[in-house]
Design a protein around this nucleic acid. Structure first.
Lengths: 148, 148
DNA sequence: TTAAAATAAATTGCATACAATTTAATTGTA
DNA sequence: TACAATTAAATTGTATGCAATTTATTTTAA
């Protein structure tokens, strides 16, 4: 029992969170390689599949990413043919990203991915639900703090 | 209810994990800036505070990082004066990293960090414990898979 | 109405991550 | 004992993340 115990790796909550997030994206890689997508590109496509059309800012709000990350990433998805970019008519500062037909087709090919990934995670339905709730509790609290 | 529901961002467990890990390290930043350390450098120092001396490989096993990440990071910590590197006597392939006096002193200055950070996280003791258990359950399972 | 403030993307710079390759050294084995 | 296989770091290359700055445009307010 020492005053330094709080600085031990094993007593951190942040560390398993950090390590686990990395492990998950690392285990997504072989599944996503088949589609020539990275994890970040994959979740960006999730936003596009749902919204069909969104500004860079909106995508960033969904994914907690800024334009510094999204601009090059969106350019790559455009070069792969899954989305298109054009200036907004209403507001020439904004860029509207739209899903293409190829992007919509990709969705059909990728429906199996979540199931394939689910097999990697060792949790029961119930545990997964608990984890989900706890993570969003933290995230929502950060959102509140940051909104101040 | 569509066959695409599994590809919705809100139905993913990976996404809040990914977003939460980023949010936590982002909120560490102002606390760590004071010590001119990044989050990864901070957890590397945690390993060094505990072990006093460790090879790059050992540090990597603790943190789930490889030499591609650690080599430049360790060089930075060395240039800050917190650790020292030298070739191993037993095995000239290996590098032994050792904590310096300045590195030990840093520990005293940083004992307050975990408490300061704890205030940011919205969870009760009990919830934090649950989260900790769930995260290590996933991590340990990945370790088992990867060991095959 | 027009200049200042605010906003959206893009750009720049730094620090990870990590796969893949390279280099140097050590082990295992025929 | 040579020599192939293995191992530990370092290096290289690609892709994030994110703070800070820049550019273009729009809002706000005097």
């Amino acid at each position: 029992m020492s005053k330094y115990d709080c600085l031990k790796l094993e007593n951190q909550l942040c560390f398993p969170l950090y390590a686990c997030a990395k492990a998950v994206t690392r285990h997504y890689k072989p599944l996503l390689d088949e589609f020539d997508l990275t994890y970040t590109q994959y979740i960006t496509m999730m936003v596009m599949w749902e919204k069909k059309s969104a500004s860079v800012k909106e995508i960033g709000e969904c994914l907690y990413l800024d334009s510094g990350t999204l601009t090059p990433l969106i350019n790559k998805l455009e070069s792969k043919g899954y989305i298109e970019k054009h200036r907004s008519d209403d507001d020439a500062r904004g860029v509207v990203v739209t899903i293409t037909e190829a992007g919509k087709k990709l969705r059909d090919k990728m429906v199996k991915v979540p199931n394939d990934m689910g097999g990697c995670v060792a949790l029961s339905e119930e545990e997964a639900g608990e984890l989900y709730t706890l993570l969003y509790k933290i995230l929502n609290h950060f959102d509140e703090i940051d909104a101040l």
